[in-house]
Amino acid sequence: MSILVIAEHNNQHLEAATLNTITAASMLGTDVHILIAGEQCDQVAEDAATIKGITKVLLAQGKNYAHRLAENTAPLIHSLADVYSHILAPATTFGKNFMPRVAALLDVDQISDIIAVENDNTFRRPIYAGNAIATVESSAVKKVITVRSTNFEAASKSDHSAPIETIDTAFDTGTSSFIELTKEESERPELTTADIVVSGGRGMGNGENFELLYKLADKLGAAVGASRAAVDAGYVPNDMQVGQTGKVVAPNLYIAVGISGAIQHLAGMKDSKIIVAINKDSDAPIFQVADYGLVADLFEILPELTEKV
């Protein structure tokens, strides 16, 4: 049977996590299809058709899919499920929103947030904020899976182009409607795909002080993240949160500034290649996972570091 990947996109381009999900899908079979549900998103379908490993693109368009509301997306995926053994989506807030709904419609338990594929029906996934790794075997006829993108390479482009098939079934339950999406516009790289991430915690003191981090980040071409404490305190918006319930990142270099290192934060960044911690408290748990620790006052260190990198 074939494998189906649900694409995360914004009607203009594919989101990066889709490419990692395709890699996970390719470990399960050679016939990998991708569903693009959206509005006026032909370009996304054309781009998806040229990704290595994709053999067919399913394109469902309409106002009802414009914002990919779970109430409309889940029955669409359920209606297509017959020919698929596995259905995968990124374990982002996009995939987490509708995939369990698909699983329930199929009467199966979902396998959430996989970090490795052992075989067709066995997967590894973190539990307890990543403090334990479970190996889970699924007996489901159809396996519904969300994929942690940082644990799989991104699929590359190929020079072939897979056929695009139009899906006409329009599910519109009418029970939910989109009002607005508010988003902080930023020129910096996306947090989950950036090569370098600079994160600030409660030690930053206030939102204005994050400017010090932005300056360092801009010099390094880095994305900026934050701990839950900094988001809760209102220093920065929620989409910057790294951790068990925020974003999971695994850049080449993660610089944690004024972050104590609660297990909930470590869950979101401890797979980074190199971790640097800057904190004035030498006992902060962040130093236990840091490759390089600097015990110092961040307000003195940040300008100097920005100058010297």
């Binding site: 338990d109 396998i111 066995t122 973190p126 539990i127 990543g130 403090n131 334990a132 790794i133 479970a134 190996t135 889970v136 075997e137 699924s138 007996s139 489901a140 401890k270 971790i275 030498s282 130093f287 236990q288 996972v289 840091a290 490759d291 390089y292 620790g293 600097l294 015990v295």
Partner: peptide
Amino acid sequence: NKMIKVESPAVRESGVK
């Protein structure tokens, strides 16, 4: 879903100050 094994995650070696 059947959990067949639970393991500790790979431990990061602590670095230097």
